[in-house]
Design a protein around this nucleic acid. Structure first.
Length: 595
RNA sequence: GCGCCCGUAGCUCAGCUGGAUAGAGCACGAGACUUCUAAUCUUGAGGCCGCAGGUUCGACUCCUGCCGGGCGCACCA
């Protein structure tokens, strides 16, 4: 028989950063019951329990927990689901924390817990504090997440913002679920774009030396941000390179310009609270001979061959010429076409270097994640093919595509023109609405859905704005805390939680879902789920708060009822803790009070 | 032509990686509150989950084929 000791000391069973939740606890109970049924010969041994789930039912009237165990195992066990459920349910009902377990529908087992189990969960939240919800799901697993990786040719603009936030929040989420995370930025400092940058800087350099450069020519970067770089070069080198051949200065100017741009970019990322620990250089990948090594390896396995590409269809190219190139057999891994890794002049294609770079990353991580703009969707298959080929499919690899953000002001789309350099910079937006608003808002939609960012709406103080609504819930909790202190009410310690009513316990039940939401979000690589969950939690808290409008005796602070007040404050503290933990994953600071 | 993403209430979007009667906000209908725990609250109506098959005890979710919208299809980055 399973140990029927219930959940009496779960609050203290927080260990190794992992929260034991009611759900995981019952998953364990059910596993033990199945073990006993196997030993007794009531179930065949070795059944696949992978799909057995313990979840909150969507309809709260079905109880607190529901399990599909009987339905999942019925067929392989050669039993009727309801009959199997009838065998298991009474064994579940035997636990102290269970008030009832009944079979419902096609074979669900609905479990109703005693109220004390939820009071216990509230204590567990308080005991675990900022660790509540952490899990060991990713223990021992290293994840490399590469995001932003904007070309080092200028400051970040809003096009980069969403990927930056999604990547950083996903990194935080994976850390929360126990993964060892490396945040990485790939500097594209080896292509034609950085040569153009160097030439643009050279122009600014001549300008700094007093030359009249007139209009910035078509094809160069016109931005003012290159002026200080030109000035610095003028100060360092004088007019040494003013009239010399490009070959004399190109590499030097490229190096200086890229370094300066990366300083700008790092500063921009800093405004969002982002600090990646690895900045990997494409040029360094080249210099280290990584593409050559990858090519040799792939040729050995006949995954690279010399061949001729077909002309692209559906598109007429005047200057198309069939050329023999070294091609990677990405079609073998599901791509539509084999892809060249070198150009006809023998130099590496972007893909050729990127392939080698991903191989490099895979050597220090069990799982790779790339965050890309949706405009790169067409290249996902080839890089996935490359990672699979180079790692023999041993490295998990996910490319997360992030859709465009449309900026709106007064309901009208903000016009942006790269040509004139009049894009809205990330720094401008952060300065206008604040880091936390930007970060939260970027997570209010799933990454692969388009999003509008309306300057007015994101700072609106109403329940329509989830950023505000979640922060407001936290501010209310902190406010009531301060008032309680001012009135000399002792917070913390042993509150009598039996004074909490059913509606208040319902809020605890919502809070108790946080750990499984975090795990599910981490598994799906979808940090936006945290934002949606916090919105739901906040709404439920506000509803509870609003009870106090019509019924003063239902307020959190009730005069002349210190014990009741203490119990309700304990509840509020628990909710506040969940909000802080969720916001921390998103990289957003919880506020103490609203403006 | 091929590939990828999307299609859920009038609108904007969720839907916990296959669970029970598909959810929220806005807008709409009805009511409450003239206050300070209302930078509102309660409640109602609203659905062929693009269409058609298939897998399954069970499908918005997975598979196939259509329809419709967006993006991509260079040795660019």
């Amino acid at each position: 028989m399973p140990d029927a000791s219930g959940s009496s000391n779960r609050a203290s069973s927080h260990k190794q950063g992992q929260t034991v939740t009611i759900y995981s606890e019952f998953a364990g109970h059910i596993g033990a019951i199945l073990d006993h049924l196997e030993e007794a010969g009531d179930l065949p041994a070795g059944l696949d329990r992978k799909n057995v789930a313990v979840e909150p039912p969507r309809d709260p009237s079905h109880g607190d927990l529901a399990t599909n165990v009987a339905m999942v195992l019925a067929k392989p066990a050669g039993k009727n689901p309801r009959e199997l459920a009838m065998i298991i349910a009474p064994k579940i009902a035997r636990f102290d924390s269970v008030a009832g377990a009944e079979v419902a529908g096609p074979g669900f087992i609905n479990i109703r817990l005693v109220d004390d189990a939820w009071r216990e969960e509230l204590r567990a939240i308080a005991a675990a504090g900022e660790n509540y919800g952490r899990s060991a799901m990713g223990a021992g697993k290293t994840v490399n997440i590469e995001y932003v990786s904007a070309n080092p040719t200028g400051p970040l603009h809003m096009g980069h913002c969403r990927g930056a936030v999604v990547g950083d929040a996903l990194a935080g989420l994976l850390e929360f679920t126990g993964h060892a995370v490396t945040r990485e930025y790939y500097i594209n400092d080896a292509g034609g774009q950085v040569d153009i940058l160097a030439r643009s800087t050279h122009l600014r350099y001549r300008e700094a030396l007093g030359e009249d450069i007139g209009e910035i020519p078509e094809g160069l970067y016109p931005g003012e941000y290159l002026k200080p770089v030109g000035e610095a070069l003028a100060a360092e080198f004088g007019d040494r390179y003013a009239a010399s051949e490009e070959t004399q200065w190109l590499a030097l100017f490229r190096e200086h310009s890229v370094a300066a741009m990366m300083d700008l970019i790092r500063a921009d990322l800093g405004l969002l609270g982002i600090a990646q620990e690895v900045f990997a250089s494409e040029a360094a990948v080249h210099a280290a001979g990584k593409p050559e090594a990858a090519e040799a390896e792939l040729r050995k396995r006949d995954l690279v061959y010399d061949g001729i590409l077909e002309a692209p269809k559906g598109k007429t190219l005047d200057d198309w010429e069939p050329v023999e190139l070294p091609l990677f057999r990405s079609t073998r891994f599901g791509d539509d076409q084999d892809r060249p890794i070198r150009k006809s002049d023998g130099s590496w294609t972007y893909f050729g270097a990127d392939l080698a770079y991903h191989f490099q990353k895979s050597q220090s991580a069990d799982m790779l994640i790339d965050i890309w703009g949706a405009d790169h969707a067409g290249t996902v298959k080839r890089i996935k093919a490359a990672v699979e080929a180079l790692t023999d499919g041993k490295t998990e690899f996910d490319v997360k595509l992030v859709q465009m953000v449309r900026l709106l002001r007064d309901g009208e789309p903000v016009k942006m023109s790269k040509r004139s350099g009049s894009f809205v910079t990330l720094a401008d937006v952060v300065e206008e609405v604040g880091k936390d608003v930007v970060r939260f808002t970027m997570l209010t939609r799933k990454a692969d859905a388009q999003m509008d960012f309306d300057f007015a709406k994101v700072v609106e103080a109403s329940k329509d704005n989830p950023v505000f609504y979640v922060q407001y819930a936290h501010a209310r909790i902190r406010s009531v805390h301060r008032r309680a202190q001012a009135e000399g009410i002792e917070i913390g310690g042993a509150a009598d939680l039996s004074l909490l009513d059913a509606e208040e316990l319902a809020l605890v039940k919502r809070a108790a879902q946080f750990p499984r939401i975090a795990e599910a979000a981490a598994n799906a690589h979808e940090p936006h789920r945290i934002a949606f969950y916090l919105g739901d939690l906040a709404a439920e808290f506000h509803a509870l708060w609003n009870r106090g409008n019509d019924h003063p005796e239902k307020r959190l602070l009730v005069a002349d009822a210190p014990d009741l007040t203490r119990a309700r404050l304990a509840l509020a503290e628990g909710i506040g803790q969940i909000i802080r933990n969720g916001l921390a994953i998103m990289g957003v600071e919880a506020v103490e009070e609203m403006e």
